[in-house]
């Protein structure tokens, strides 16, 4: 942070739009500064190298009768200077990168905690009141720390606007924090809530590129709390079928189960309820409430024949009320 002195701040900000999405968090600013510092150093060297190269290409091109001139084959001063100067520059780069890295990676003590569970290919953000949402909602101007764990393979949570990214590794917790800031209001007044894309950047299989959701930044803590309260009361505000539809769309069911009878990865929900299922081990059963509940909590217990056993478990991520709503929703898909 203290290295900002080095950086032509003004210049950085005007070009930022060309290189980067808008700055959405406190760290974004320092990352961009570091980036532009390196960029200018690199541009200088690149112009130098390519300029000299072009100059020599023109000036010393082969012409009949002109032989190459014999010059010294080495010059210690010259060679040392182009070893030492880049070395010093890289030390500066390391230092500024290092200091802002520490800022990015040390979550402040007082921050709002959100638990994240990543699985193929959905995100689940669990708020302190127990509500789970597939989009990340945060209040503006407040430190937020994500504690992340993965259910299957490695994922990586990246919010380009916040310039921060961390792998979500199965078998351990990783952390990531940020503090959203209001964007510059050059392009007119800012509309809240703000939305930024959030994506998985570590390759995680078939639908890796669909593991994209959004960050919603609420203007004040009050707005955020209101949203959270409202969302958590889903069973009050909506009929079971509507709530079920919400879970179907937001929890990732939609990725594998269609509503129109087509087969994506798993069986379609159309006409599922009450039908007879044949399982991989040859047994059969009726798709009733118990069966659906078990399939959500223990997906590998009864896998319908000819489908791969790939469904992740939703245990701990859906309450019984949620599951009931989903069952009602499936029931409604005639």
């Amino acid at each position: 942070m203290q290295m900002k002195l080095f950086i032509p701040e003004l210049l950085a900000n005007t070009v930022a739009g060309f290189w980067f999405p808008s700055q959405g968090s406190t760290v974004a600013e320092s990352v961009d500064s570091v980036y532009f510092f390196i960029l200018w150093v690199c541009t200088f060297f690149f112009v130098l190298i390519v300029g000299l190269m072009l100059l020599f290409m023109v000036k010393y091109r082969h012409r009949p009768g002109v032989e190459a001139e014999k010059t010294v084959t080495h010059n210690l001063t010259l060679e040392l200077s182009w070893s030492v100067i880049p070395t010093l520059l890289t030390i500066v780069m390391f230092w500024i990168g290092f200091t802002s890295y520490l800022d990015m990676r040390t979550p402040p003590a007082a921050s709002y905690q959100i638990d994240v569970v990543a699985k193929k290919w959905v995100w689940a953000f669990k708020y302190p009141n127990g509500w789970i949402e597939s989009e990340l909602h945060i209040p503006l101007d407040e430190n937020v720390t994500l504690t992340m764990a993965s259910d299957d393979v490695i994922h990586s949570l990246w919010i380009p606007a916040f310039r921060t990214k961390m792998d979500v590794v199965p078998g351990r917790y990783t952390q990531e924090w940020f503090k959203a800031i209001p964007p510059s209001d050059e392009d007119g007044p800012v509309k809240y809530p703000l939305e930024y894309p959030l994506m998985c950047s570590e390759y995680c299989g078939t639908k890796h590129s669909e593991m994209v959701t959004k960050v919603v930044v609420h203007e004040t803590r009050g707005d955020f709390d209101k949203w959270l309260q409202n969302a958590a009361d889903i069973h009050k505000n909506k009929t079971p079928i509507e709530a079920g539809e919400y879970f179907y769309k937001s929890r990732g069911c939609i990725l594998c189960h269609s509503l129109d009878g087509s087969i994506i990865k798993g069986p379609s929900f159309k006409g599922l309820f009450g039908s007879e299922r044949t399982f991989a081990d040859g047994t059969t059963g009726i798709a009733n409430e118990n069966y659906i509940r078990q399939s959500i909590l223990e997906p590998q217990a009864k896998v319908v024949a000819n489908f791969p056993p790939v469904m992740p478990t939703f245990k701990g991520q859906l309450t019984d009320q949620d599951i009931t709503a989903i069952i009602r929703f499936i029931e409604a898909q005639k």
Partner: peptide, 29 residues
């Protein structure tokens, strides 16, 4: 000569990825 041009870009952009702060943003992109 093409190598000189390309390698200059390739080498210099490596600096962004060696720097911790920028690599966080640029990693896996």
């Amino acid at each position: 000569l093409a190598f000189l041009f390309i390698f200059s870009i390739g080498g210099l952009t490596g600096l962004f990825l060696a720097t911790l702060a920028t690599d966080i943003h640029l990693h896996d992109t």
